[in-house]
Design a protein around this nucleic acid. Sequence first.
RNA 1: GCACCCAUAGCUCAGCUGGAUAGAGCGUUGCCCUCCGAAGGCAAAGGUCGCACGUUCGAAUCGUGCUGGGUGCGCCA
Length: 580
Amino acid sequence: MNLFTELRKLVIAELGAMTEAGLLPAGLDLGAVAVEPPRDPAHGDMATNAAMVLAKPAGQQPRVIAEALAARLATDPRIVSAEVAGPGFLNMRLAPGVWQDLVQTILTTGAEYGRSTLGAGAKVNVEFVSANPTGPMHVGHVRGAVVGDALSNLLAFAGWQVTREYYINDGGAQVNVLARSAYERYREANGLEPEIREGLYPGDYLIPVGEALKAKYGTSLIDQPESVWLEDVREFATEAMMAMIREDLAALGVRMDVYSSEKALYGTGQIEAAIETLRGMDLIYDGVLEPPKGTTPEDWEPREQTLFRSTAHGDDVDRPVMKSDGSWTYFAPDIAYHFNKVQRGFDQLIDIFGADHGGYVKRMKAAVSALSGGRVPLDIKLIQLVKLFKNGEPFKMSKRAGTFVTLRDVVEEVGADVTRFVMLTRKNDMALDFDFDKVMEQSKDNPVFYVQYANARINSVLRKAREAGVAVEDAALAGADLSQLGHPAELALIGKLAEWPRLVEIAAKGNEPHRVAFYLYELASDLHGLWNRGNDEPALRFVQEDAGVTQAKIGLARAVGVVICAGLAILGVTPVEEMR
RNA sequence: GCACCCAUAGCUCAGCUGGAUAGAGCGUUGCCCUCCGAAGGCAAAGGUCGCACGUUCGAAUCGUGCUGGGUGCGCCA
């Protein structure tokens, strides 16, 4: 149940009645009418902008509409007062019973409270991580993985049918480099001196792959030309890397539904088919691109290439799909891959990319727009860098020296829950500082701790009540006399709980899982505030002398706990019962 | 040169897709434990929302032009 949509329905209904009564002209567009929480609580519980939005098309003064609407709304039993304020806002106060009923609703619906049908079952594909299969995941991949996973959870909760997908970049030159690197480790495993030449991957993680190659091939590949072993070793090593990446993802609590292979697109005609489809739309041609202005590369020379007319779909220049030697560019299989996603029937595509892929956004959108005939929207989320800190000092990592920080390093140091939460405390397009010490700090400066602490307090107070002989099961609490919850501070906290379903929809609409993290912080803050007011006003403590009153208060605490747990579930964070 | 992203309190950041007196945390100052967990809370101070025009009842939010920072820009994926 979403209180805001309920009341919006009421407002819309009353506006309809006013139209029938001839107070408003027929045919007004009510789409812009909103029911929102006022920013200033002193203004009431709910506000609508209806009068202001409709004033102009109706050709009437906003206050005139507002007054008429207010009088009608005030007759609803849920609404205690409806007042016109400012330029034409309509502020409403709700009966305490509305809030008390909400607590009951939360207790009876549990984790399902806030679930939405906004997505209407539309099929959405979320592609994320897609790290090259050339080594373990490093810290740079973590944020994208967490954002993609949390976004998937969020969309599923908001009514979408979600597929989580990983695109394996196993078709380019980098997997040949991997194969050569692994081959040297294979030689090493056979007692030879490895030659880790410039440009190969020096990491230790390939040593076990070399061992495994020895176990499989013995010495049969030694001193053989590359043409003999490259393909087999490449496949073997890529498999091994993907197994490692799956483990890394599992350590972070991320599970993919589908792994798609770039290599698998080659030789199946899929790339050719995608390009031919575009050619059929006159979007593929042979031509010569202008050199980039400003810093022209020294080796620039005009070259004829096969180009995609992405400018026809909003890009700035046309993009090459084929190199001059006749092989595909990276873009070509990517087009085929996205075409494949469109053909699989998704209604909506989302890609999570690193910020360094920003230049790729327009051409990818152009391709999807062309190949789906504009039917399938593609949203691309660019994930900004994570800057690592330790003891307040920047934490340098060098790929060259092999001292780069892996996903495992981070998870083993601070845990998956902390990692996930912190990664979601910033908008995706803002850079994020990750301080190994700060994220473990037990203070309100640390949002992870602060939210977990709120939940721990709720559990603590439930324990206390249980020890006092009060029934604290959700069913019992839902049956309590919730009219005991009448204090403005308590009603305000319930008001925050009322926002949860609305927040889910707002966050889902914008593909912005970070909003959930911020909401939880605010909710935790409100709970801590009420808790501490109990110091001065014993009537606000959760555990009271009277068992019935205690049950009502505990019901509120539990309702907050329910929402915190639901929010944490979307973030993929395990709630803690007790602080250590 | 072009494209995309960013610019909000001393610092780190939110800001519900155009709403009312722009909000948190840290830091500063002053309060609150005989009391459900003070690992917390309350209060004060702190702002030309980078700048300038424009759109309108109304702009941190939308448009245009600037300034400053980041990222990227034809045989790397």
